[in-house]
Design a binder for these strands. Structure first.
Lengths: 246, 246
DNA sequence: CACGTCAGTTTGTGCGCACATGCTGACGTC
DNA sequence: GACGTCAGCATGTGCGCACAAACTGACGTG
């Protein structure tokens, strides 16, 4: 019990000590070096062994606790959480949707690419209603099998994004390259029968529904980055969400 | 600028000082006493004014930063985040689904309540396949208008829950009363045409889809608490999710 | 006037210490 | 043998201090 983990701290990098420690502990847990339920070395001993202060070690451990990897109980100690509780730091991928494993041959076709005004998108992003927005409609497929119709509206700052860029790269990758990466987003998920357009693009019969998702993304300063209105073939798609309520 | 917020700290309650401070600051922000973008009093001054140490004040502010209410930048100071970024601490309600405002007359009818074995539910919860589970099927309505069919499977520890309790109280409220409150859950959201049963209960035509959500919840120790398979009238329901990626 | 520099401000990182609180297990008493 | 008590242990809360790093704005020099 109280397994000691091999950790090496480098005091000559600009990376904070607590973060170096947290990353190495996380690696030890996710690699399976520590099994769920196994006791963790206590703070004092670890601080002593590594030549760090207790607050620094506490901060590293706290990082992993808030990621759900560790459980701490006063008087008892710190233990590795059950594997089912392990979760990635991110919640639902804000990144592009088709990076799920096993997607054989992802393709993107740009159906439309024009500057318009749109009251729904402008309202959601909180910009004036007559703001010119770049409207992009893409069809996502796996090989010849259509999967989703993605409609997005972007503020003027991004209106120079080209069709070529969209074909080769995901929208979120493009946005991140321009610095303003999204931090917070609302998402609303629903379902409805497909429109005629959607039915044609997605090769659907009238009885097959589409799963819809609308979302708005902002950067850290609160500036709008994107408004999106996507619809997916419900047969092929489902959305994973992870929650925690503490 | 650097508006001072009226805060009262009580050192005679068991509530930690940093949490008292965080709650009162949160109230000041959400009540609109501080406007988005407005500068915040700096840590040192606030600590001095309130008779607290800087670490304590930092911890309170950090709580609000991780909730997305505040933005801090080194050398600049702390400012109130844009209103669009404000978000509740919880992500998606794990609590019962029909507490959304404006729901006039919520009713719950228990359609089925029996002990069964179910391989899907047992697998999702990670218990032996022959574990006897309490299976509950409920119909949620608003007045005479049906909204959702809720199917849940519970481990043996909860098999003494009665039909009466379910009619008057939400399932999650019951589970919380028994101590083991859920901490982490997976959720999977999809859509499909309704089954014959669902069509009858929800008064749907064949072309109208249902929005489906399956989820598994665990308590802090990793023990399974609930497996649920819910379907909602897509016309009346949509699911709100909030994300943040830092 | 343009540019670099430097002081001042504010948050970030890291250390030390002390005491409180919740839990476990062993000991001792009735 | 059942029960309360108490010591030991690990985390929780709270304080003090020092220095680093990022940003702003003013000042000064060419």
């Amino acid at each position: 019990m109280a397994k000691q983990i091999d950790v090496r701290i480098d005091r000559d990098t600009p990376v904070p000590l607590y973060h170096q420690l947290a990353q190495q502990l996380e690696a030890a847990i996710t690699s399976g070096e520590l099994s769920p339920g196994e006791a963790f070395e206590n703070e004092i001993a670890m601080a002593d062994r590594l030549g760090l202060s207790r607050p620094t070690v506490r901060r590293a451990i706290q990082e992993l606790v808030s990621q759900g990897l560790l459980l701490r109980r006063r008087g008892l100690g710190t233990t590795v959480a059950s594997r089912q509780i392990h979760r990635r730091a991110e919640l639902t991928s804000l990144y592009d949707d088709l990076k799920r494993e096993g997607a054989g041959d992802p393709r993107t076709q740009v159906l439309s690419h024009e500057v318009v005004t749109d009251t729904t998108a402008a309202t959601a992003m909180g910009v004036p209603l007559d703001t010119p927005l770049l409207r992009i409609v893409r069809l996502r497929s796996d090989g010849d099998h259509p999967l989703a119709v993605l409609r997005n509206w972007l503020p003027p700052a991004y209106s120079d994004i080209t069709v070529e860029q969209l074909t080769t790269s995901g929208l979120y990758a493009l946005l991140r390259d321009r610095g303003a990466r999204p931090v917070v987003a609302h998402q609303r998920i629903g379902a409805r029968p497909p429109s005629a357009d959607e039915r044609r693009h997605l090769c659907l019969r009238a009885s097959q529904p589409v799963l819809t998702m609308t979302r708005t993304a902002f950067d850290a300063m609160g500036n709008p980055v994107e408004y999106g209105d996507h619809c997916y073939r419900a047969e092929d798609y489902s959305i994973e969400v992870m929650l925690d309520e503490r």
